[in-house]
């Protein structure tokens, strides 16, 4: 069986490791770092154009994959709501209380509210753990994408990809 993004829609370990937009695990701090899961060469550059600190570079050949400079990234999350592919999250590791905070793009109803407990899911939509919703930035006008900030135990840092608020998906876990 083939694995990887082209065959399953789920990236394999090697693909994630080789993506120039994905920061090394030890460069992710408490303030948050973009995690750009853009694995293929597609002509697109809003992440680079909207990054306020110049942490993302693509260049004139916009089919290049975005390269993240983790040192310049301040974890502001602008790119999370700008990426047309919804491929970017921001990960922050709060080592003092052993939790991870993940800001993720979300374009489904119902949107959760701060304080809710939601199901955090992996890249195959399977339940990973309960997560606490810290904050929801709803989309303004049509153009942007809502950004949901969740907190969960740090052991699931790279496993959690999104959340599930659909009633009919609750039996997947």
């Amino acid at each position: 069986m083939h694995d990887g993004i082209l065959y399953t829609g789920v990236p394999n370990r090697q693909e994630l490791k080789n993506a120039p937009g994905i920061p090394a695990a030890d460069s992710i701090g408490a303030g948050g770092t973009a995690f750009i899961e853009c694995l293929q060469t597609i002509a697109c550059n809003p992440c680079e154009a909207n990054c306020p600190t110049g942490a993302i570079s693509i260049g004139a050949q916009i089919s290049n994959r975005p390269v993240l400079d983790a040192k310049k990234c301040v974890g502001c999350g602008t790119c999370v709501s700008k990426c047309p592919g919804l491929a970017i999250t921001v990960i922050a590791r709060k080592r003092d209380d052993a939790t991870t905070v993940l800001s993720l793009p979300y374009e489904y109803f119902p949107l959760p509210s701060a304080g809710d407990t939601v199901a955090a899911v992996d890249r195959e939509g399977r339940f990973v753990c309960d997560a606490n919703v810290l904050n929801v930035k709803p989309m303004s006008a049509h153009q942007s994408t809502s950004v949901v900030k969740i907190e969960f135990p740090e052991e699931y840092t790279f496993k959690v990809k999104s959340i599930n608020t659909f009633h009919w998906r609750s039996n997947n876990g």
């Binding site: 082209l6 491929a87 489904y108």
Partner: peptide
């Protein structure tokens, strides 16, 4: 997004035809 349930996407080829980011969005949704 409109509130329907999508049970599966079927593809006769051995690989996904569209962009990986589009595939990942729906895989993540289960």
């Amino acid at each position: 997004q409109a509130g329907a349930e999508v049970l599966a996407v079927v593809e006769r080829d051995d690989h996904i035809g569209g962009y990986g980011v589009h595939a990942e969005k729906i895989r993540t949704a289960g």
